[in-house]
Design a protein around this nucleic acid. Structure first.
Lengths: 382, 382
DNA sequence: ACAATTATTTCCGCGGCAGAAGTAATAATT
DNA sequence: AATTATTACTTCTGCCGCGGAAATAATTGT
């Protein structure tokens, strides 16, 4: 890959490890890094000095924690020393962001997709990249996230929303933009973003469930994401949660897709009360006590709770992160969710640590940017 | 730990990695090891020579695979260069084995437990150790497996079958036997045995389901076992598989415990046909087409299939290993198992690679021995 | 002020790595 | 039957980069 040649840290491989440690756990003192990486204190001086001179790391203010001894001088990443682009590609639109090294969103643009033809999409991506490069001319790399199965080389194996099969998207974009590019499944990207810079930061085991147009699932074990060839087809999407639930388009009764997704909730509430409502209104109605909306939302919450219980039972996460545009469901149906958890979880087991993300529409772009950051920082694709 | 001091390989840490690579993947050529460990060919000569001189490794016969070039001289572990003891402790009995470095069982003894009092059990273990040491006086370490929650320091936090809480078993045994000892949960031990020397050898992701007195579950991701503080209480044991199933002692309807365990199947068949049968007979009846036994077994198979589907959906294993004394269920109810899988698994997903172990009663002892081997070889507890 | 503690820097020695060159043993090619 | 290509392994050299010791620095506690 082109992206590998530009190593972000000169010198020995251990310097890269130090920078990574600071990126992921900083601000952090040299001595603490030495302990974590099992290096001597002397090595840490040797390794960190050039990184500071290069402007990648900075010494933050002193840190006294009341203990005896010389105070440590914690190191931190200079987040704006590098910039990255992240994009979310759906069947209808394209949204892009500029982020810093810690995936903080600095700027965002969105535009409709002219068509779903691969070449048109690649052109649209290139146009958006140009716009973003005006804001951040120094951007290091671009990450693109989309729903579907992605091969290692950045080829889109299948993407139902776009009606794509075997589209060499990375190659198409790189030849148009001259910017190192990575393509990744959107849920994997989202999970990695939570892993490095979000609610999963510092955890070695956690799961992610996203609610929105579909139901997504991501898993991190031993500080690394778990995925196989099936990752990206949304395996949990058609999992039967409710034997008496509604039918999904694929013919499954009460599967996650037919119970948890925004469209499922919207259509169930709409048909129940006899007029069209959107997701936000469905949630409001449920909160206000409308019996039909309440029942639909509680059914979804119960199903979600059972899904969370299954995840907790089988993957032993330290935390489960709930994200996506439909994350509001968790707050509105919290009681039903917990009822679902109680139903399928051993009472002796520890409580599940549940955390929600804001659920805004930039989360997916941020995830894509994180894939670019990881590829740049680790010198290898995820 | 005492066990750490006796490092099995002298010299640099890389020598340990080489020996481990051979233990887990041997016979394997030097050049292949160099590729896997990202070392130069020269380093491999330097590292492997002393290991061969020490008698830990041996050159096996040449290996031509038809390719051009000089044939490789694969290295392998001398399995009988070390011996280990493994024990399985239940509420009623104690069973012990002698194994070699690859966990091949060389000898086994079993005896009834005089009482469940911790001191009596420790005495019984010490007696069995003495017997096993007559067969293998050079035994390196002892591993003990039992159902329950075990702390890192080898203290049994809780063991329902023994009615134990906070019993410092490792300390008690070491003070009696003068042999480095490790204590571990039986399902974790079984999983590690499959991981290093069984059906999970060479895989980086797989799950284990054991059937017997209880239902056990183990998970390996990224080539390492996944466990948390709840590991050992049998989290999947009370998972509701069948909303209309029988009640388990803890009051759950249709939970894994009440559907899949040997006692559940035996009692359901016995009460159904009006006479007492044992597990083997229940299976024979089902195979012979007895309607009552058939239905009980198929219900269990269906529940097992749904459990396997859930595991596959959420943990993305390359394989699921079925073990334990009740593994026969899988063969007798194979059709029902696959029906259960189809019910809860996305049809687009890849087929699950299912493998069964022999299901003999030495498997658990072998697992315990593997924990001892790992602790010795890695120089640290799992 | 002095001891104790912790963080960081400086510097030396050397273990252990990669890389190059050489040797060995095969298959494919002529 | 040579010759060439390929792969495996060994030997040797240079030197990178680590640990460890000692010095320096900056605190808290007495």
């Amino acid at each position: 890959m082109t992206i590998e040649s530009a190593t972000w840290t000169a010198g020995p491989a251990a310097a890269r490890d130090v920078a990574l440690e600071v990126l992921l756990h900083g601000p952090i003192s040299r001595s603490e890094i030495a302990r974590r990486l099992k290096l001597s204190a002397g090595s840490l001086t040797r390794l960190s000095t050039p990184l500071i001179e290069d402007g990648l790391l900075v010494e933050t203010g002193e840190y006294q924690d009341g203990r005896a001894g010389r105070p440590s001088r914690p190191l931190d990443i200079k987040p704006d020393s590098r910039h990255f682009l992240g994009m979310k590609l759906t069947g209808e639109s394209l949204q892009g962001v500029v982020t810093d090294l810690r995936a903080t969103v600095l700027h965002s643009i969105s535009q409709a997709l002219p068509s779903r033809a691969p070449d048109d999409v690649a052109d649209a991506i290139a146009a958006l990249v140009s716009e973003l490069l005006e804001v951040a001319p120094d951007a290091t790399a671009l990450g693109i996230g989309l729903g579907g199965r992605i091969a290692e080389d950045g080829t889109v194996r299948s993407a139902p929303f776009l009606d794509w099969a075997d589209v060499p998207l990375r190659h198409m974009v790189e030849s148009r933009c001259n910017l190192p590019t990575v393509v990744q499944n959107d849920v994997i990207a989202f999970t990695e973003a939570e892993h490095w810079f979000g609610a999963g930061r510092g955890l070695e085991r956690f799961a992610v469930v996203t609610l929105g147009a579909g139901a997504g699932y991501g898993l991190v074990e031993h500080d690394a994401i778990v995925s196989n060839d099936d990752a990206g087809i949304g395996l949990v999407g058609h999992w039967p949660l409710d034997p008496l639930g509604p039918l999904c388009p694929a013919g499954h009764r009460g599967c996650a897709h037919s119970v948890l997704t925004q469209s499922a909730i919207v259509s169930a509430v709409s048909s129940g009360i006899g007029r069209e409502v959107d997701y936000a209104e469905a949630m409001s109605l449920a909160e206000a006590g409308d019996p039909v909306a309440r029942r639909v939302v509680d059914d979804a919450g119960l199903g979600l709770g059972r899904l969370l219980a299954a995840i907790a039972n089988l993957t032993m996460p330290q935390r489960i992160v709930l994200g996506g545009e439909g994350v509001q469901l968790f707050d509105v149906a919290a009681d039903a969710v917990h009822a679902g958890i109680r139903r399928d979880r051993d009472p002796r087991a520890a409580d599940i640590d549940l955390v929600t993300t804001p659920g805004d529409d930039l989360e997916w772009c941020r995830g894509a940017a994180v894939i670019a950051i990881q590829t740049y920082v680790l010198g290898t694709a995820v």
